[in-house]
């Protein structure tokens, strides 16, 4: 199967849908996985990441925007096994050489990485990553979500559809 093909496309009617998908995704990820979050300012990239991280940590885990800190690190647990999560935001990065110095590649090897504004990091990212694209819908809380990825992520798409 060709890598990074469109594997699913669906509407999100509100925050509940975002939480449901974040929760399904959190059950699928393994250390080394990369989830890219694409979409305009204010579309809900950080909200999605927050829902994902809280599923694996605690409902009230503080998940601030990583825009200024660039990388936020979380020690999560799933089925009593530790899982490292890196919440990364490359909004302020202006060239690829800065990414090398951020320690991004170290993070990618250790845990699950959620990357907002991932464009400049693409050369450093694994082929089997999941690309999420969020778009505004008509209503204030409506969004569209496109998923691009390898066959690795088909079961996720099925569980979302199911």
């Amino acid at each position: 199967m060709i890598d990074n093909q469109l594997i699913d496309k669906f509407p999100l009617k509100g925050e509940q849908d975002t939480h449901r998908i974040a929760s399904l995704l959190s059950a699928e990820v393994e250390p080394g996985d990369v989830i890219c979050l694409n979409g305009d300012l204010g579309v809900g990239k950080t909200s999605f990441a927050r829902a994902f991280i809280r599923t694996l940590t605690a409902d009230d885990e503080p998940v601030p925007s990583p825009t200024y800190t660039l990388i936020q690190h979380y020690h999560a647990k799933r089925n009593k096994v530790g899982l490292e999560i890196f919440h990364i935001d490359l909004y302020r990065i202006s060239c690829h050489s800065e990414i090398e110095e951020l320690g991004l590649e170290d993070a990618l090897g250790i845990g699950v990485s959620l990357i907002e504004w991932p464009k400049l990091s693409i050369p450093s990212l694994p082929q089997h990553r999941l690309e999420i694209y969020l778009q505004f819908g008509k209503g204030v809380s409506e969004r569209y979500m496109d998923l691009f990825g390898s066959s690795r992520w088909l079961s996720l798409a099925h569980s979302i559809e199911g």
Partner: peptide
């Protein structure tokens, strides 16, 4: 802040 900082 629960999400964005004010300056951000």
């Amino acid at each position: 802040t629960l999400d964005d900082a004010v300056g951000e």
